[in-house]
């Protein structure tokens, strides 16, 4: 498989994954773009992975975790309120209808927990694969998901 074939077959799925992670189309686009540029620059290494798809998902996920530390999102952060970091996501979500409250709450979860939720309930991946993408133990995945669900349930009760 060469880079073009990979992009043809996987770009749409990666974009969907990025939207679910970030909750914002612009952030998602930046995240996918940055990841795919790196994929292309390092294609030889990527293509040697057991599963290039999982490898790239892991790259994208790490990029998402790192986005305040790294500089790649600086222009995005400058575009939004610089002190709020990802707060733009919240604003966006809050502007939507009531039924999207869960979407809004998702943006307040720690990123690792949100990523675990997306991989389990959107991508429908088994815990072992989720652990590989997140770069943690299976037990950690389960704990993250359970903690995230507890938070969301508590918020549901409050409403």
């Amino acid at each position: 498989m060469d880079y073009a074939e990979f992009a043809d077959s996987r770009l749409a799925a990666l974009s969907r994954y990025a939207v679910m992670l970030t909750g914002d189309p612009h952030l998602a686009q930046d995240l996918v773009q940055e990841t795919m540029v790196r994929v292309q620059l390092n294609w030889r290494r990527v293509s040697k992975a057991d599963s290039p798809d999982r490898y790239v998902r892991r790259m994208l996920t790490n990029q998402y975790f790192d986005w305040r530390r790294g500089s790649w999102l600086r222009r995005v952060l400058l575009r939004a309120d610089p002190d709020e970091g990802v707060a733009a996501t919240v604003d966006h979500a809050e502007a939507t209808a009531d039924r999207d409250q869960i979407w809004a709450w998702l943006s307040r979860l720690p990123r690792r927990q949100r990523a675990a939720l997306v991989l389990r309930f959107y991508e429908d991946l088994p815990d072992a694969e989720i652990a590989e993408i997140l770069g943690c133990a299976v037990g950690t995945v389960r704990a993250s998901i359970s903690r995230a669900l507890t938070t969301l349930r508590a918020q549901l009760v409050e409403v």
């Binding site: 749409a12 969907r16 189309p25």
Partner: peptide, 12 residues
């Protein structure tokens, strides 16, 4: 919720 937000996916 996830499924409902698939429309946010940017143009490929």
């Amino acid at each position: 919720t996830f499924a409902r937000h698939e429309h946010l996916v940017p143009d490929q």
